[in-house]
Amino acid sequence: MYNTLKTITLVHGVSGKEHRVANTLKDMIAPYCDESHIDAMGNFIALKKGTSANPKKVLLCGHMDEIGFIVNFVEDNGFIRVAPIGGINWVACAFGEVVSEHGVHGVLVPNSGTKASDFAPDLFYIDIGADNKKSAERKVKIGDTFVLKSNLTKLNANRVVGRPLDDRAGCGIVLEIAKRIAKELVADDVYYVFSVQEEVGCRGSKTAAFAIGADVSLTFDVTGTGDTAGSKPMAVKLGGGAAIKIKDASVICDSEIVDKLSRISKEKNIKSQLEILVYGGTDTSSIQMTGAGCRAGALSIPSRYIHSGVEMIDMNDYKACIDLAVEFIKE
């Protein structure tokens, strides 16, 4: 489970350039699904057909894309100016090691003397060690993307830290579910959707969900926790189990799905907690609202320090999400 997650996590896939992640997942999921394709937006969609003559459609979704930076401009001295893709926390990224889609290494730094409270995109640049514009442009061109260096490390007590666990953890869970139910006779069609461009406004899942026209959906993404020093009160804890989403700023999940997940969690003794997130949004909302819509739910992976280089999750929570989703689908 950890090794699979690590493999997926280390692939570059900024919003809009998720094809490497898609190709990786394609190979990994092939034995466990009946068919798969990549749609016009770049979403990777795999299908396990149901046994029922009149199957319902269940959609499981994790997003492939990660936040990062896009090259805007190369200065005469070889410094590279970038714009953010997705919700960048500049404090968390300052002085971080970054890597481009073509494997060019560099560091993301603010203009000298900038106070943390003043951090803004235009005050940052990437130094790739080039001494002038020309040598920089041999390695990097406008439109190239950078990300904070991907990594994944095991810590104590089944916890892992690295990036981008948002949302390769979700992709990993969907993949593990596919593995687990591959041999099972499931009545419903199960669509595994690995979506694109979530970080820039849940764009990929919208078209994927429209094309599928699902009846029920479950989205897997990370959620914040209330157990870090100085954090705002929130009931979700790292290690507290799969977080059954009740709402976030973009969605109110279907109450019957919430109840069903809670009940299964109790019956099957799978650790879970209820999540109310006052900010943020995930693919759940776009899936819920697209076309004629669907009954939408979400299982979140509690995560500390989201959108930093040190996102931390507990593998027990990760496993609980898989277990709970598998039981949910079986019902």
Partner: peptide, 12 residues
């Protein structure tokens, strides 16, 4: 009052 579900409703 929150996210609005009339769009899928009208679609269907």
């Amino acid at each position: 009052e929150v996210t609005g579900m009339v769009a899928p409703g009208a679609y269907a």
